[in-house]
Design a protein around this nucleic acid. Structure first.
Lengths: 333, 333
DNA sequence: TTGAAAGCGCTAACAC
DNA sequence: GTGTTAGCGCTTTCAA
């Protein structure tokens, strides 16, 4: 059962040509006659030849693989299928090439070391980085390695050269405009961490929409994207701004916390207070009432990151991308 | 920036020893004097040497990577973070080795072809297969390749030689015993697809528990693990067995559907009818009332699959594993 | 358009 | 305990 797979040389013999010619056919270079091309292809199928990846890598200096590095092991990241969706997108694009996917969770020091190994040993042709924290060392490591690297999402401190990101600002604006269009005037917001790009962008989107409509942007409370922080912020808002009629919450997790507080305080949603979240996590459709929220195109993020990396690999010049979000209207607003 | 990394030969020169010695140190073979060992290690750090994986693979006939193949792109699989959790477990074990992880989604024909390539080109040293359907060709492909392969979960048709699975039967039994211990006598079940190992095992677990307690095992309706099928099955049960006081449902998705029907029919949960689900999906804690369910050790599944594969790689003889499940008691039973 | 041959950087067998 | 060397299977010049 474990017979050694045929080598390129054996294919050459069978086809009656040189190894050079076989190699040319396989990598479909020009300068091969139809005749020998046919002969080689037959030999390949007859023998069931498959090139040895290690040998190919060594000779060509290309690895035939890209690595997806995920920095955070934050449950919040995983909680909305983010992970699975991104990978689905990445895989879809990779399927059309002959590149393989290596996956690395690099939250720990050990993980970062392993990432360094991959980089230094040229274990991959390119890198996709996801969910980096602020000042994440991975970003610099990738840069120093000189390997092509694309980022999913941005950080506040340093815009990566190539990235794909969701339109957090536009999404927030749309969400708030939806509130406005349904007649809300006293709109509040619960922000996420403002030292993240997403947190700040969503806050900016809120302000933009509200100021453009001639409304107040003073009803603000800060959270950290977590459910409990959303609850705490909602309490503050209710105490400080009892007149509020709606709230844009920068994450669904915080919105869930806010909803619970609203219920406690006897506020009806959406009649008394309308609520819009952000992310469209799985549980958003199961809250009471179901949460109106902004959906990010996560699978598309994976796809576009991969396309971008492939362009880089081909020596082309890609351009960074901001992907549109979508407002999912349910019952809470 | 893109200076060629140092080679083993350069390390040897710097350390004043032969390449053989350097190689021995790196692969920490015995028969190296402390002296040259030290010299080599210094040279390595001085030069920042990292072995070239392709060259190493070619020479050693080992790839330094294992591949995780996921067959299903079924949302049901993804819905409960299954994916993310498995990978977290796999990664944790891999971190302790110098093996890397390749990931392949092989639901499409193209994906299967790529899997075949990896197998034939010896692109990985071993294989982990997840979420195979019945009669999935991937299983046979892996077997034919002769590469070490471990399975997560089993199928009904052919027990793989090496697998890790959750104790579906035991979990179901525990769930039903919980119902019995809280005084329920007229226990019903909604099964999953009985042509899957998990579906059948859970049904078996139900029967075991109920028969052992001297209760009837006749209150049965069949679903296909989906929410809508759970709703339909619940209606049937209510019509055929109006006396039922509880129901063990073979998946949380179906349980969610059942809960909705119970509400429609004015049955109070758990007062009139207690409900236990299976899987502990994220939304289980957000149903009304929160769902009592059976949790599978998914991360552990990933970990144990990986450990098993590593044993195989080392030429050891592992043993297949059934991992215990855990009853999560919430409000519905 | 094709063949021949020199590596790619490492491991492992063998000799010392 | 250490050095030497012949490959691993492919790509890629360079000639022809």
């Amino acid at each position: 059962m474990n017979t050694r797979p045929p080598t390129l040389e054996e294919v050459a013999q069978r086809a009656g040509v040189s190894t050079g010619t076989v190699s040319r056919v396989i990598n479909n270079a020009r300068h091969v006659s139809e005749k020998s091309k046919r002969a080689v292809q037959n030999a390949i199928t007859d023998l069931g030849y498959v090139p040895n990846t290690a040998a190919r890598s060594l000779a060509s200096q290309r690895r035939g693989a890209v690595v997806l590095v995920i920095s955070s092991d934050d449950p919040a990241l995983f909680a909305n299928l983010f992970f699975a969706e991104v990978i689905t997108g990445v895989n879809a694009v990779l399927e059309e090439t002959d590149l393989h996917l290596m996956l690395l969770l690099a939250a720990s020091q050990r993980g970062r070391d392993r990432f360094g190994q991959v980089l230094q040993s040229r274990g991959a042709d390119g890198v996709m980085l996801l969910a980096l924290k602020e000042n994440d060392p991975l970003s610099k490591m990738a840069e120093d390695s000189g390997l092509p690297a694309v980022h999913g999402g941005r950080s506040l401190d340093r815009a990566p050269q190539w990235y794909v990101d969701a339109d957090n600002r536009g999404g927030a604006r749309t969400a708030v405009e939806h509130l406005i269009s349904t007649g809300r005037k006293n709109i509040a917001t619960i922000t996420g961490e403002l030292d993240t790009h997403a947190g700040m962008s969503r806050y900016m989107g809120f302000r933009e929409a509200v100021v453009l409509a001639g409304l107040s942007d003073k009803r603000v409370a800060h959270g950290d994207f977590s459910e409990s922080s959303g609850a705490a912020a909602m309490k503050l808002l209710l105490d400080d701004h009892p007149d509020l009629d709606s709230v844009f919450v920068a994450s669904d997790a915080m919105a869930t916390g806010a909803l619970a507080v609203l219920r406690e305080r006897g506020k009806r949603v959406p009649v008394d207070v309308a609520v819009v979240g952000f992310n469209d996590i799985v549980t958003a459709q199961h809250t009471q009432p179901a949460l109106t929220t902004v959906r990010q195109p996560i699978e598309a993020l994976g796809r576009e990151m991969t396309r971008m990396l492939i362009r880089l690999l081909n020596g082309e010049q890609p351009t960074s991308l901001i992907l549109p979000t979508e407002l999912i209207i349910r019952d809470s607003a």
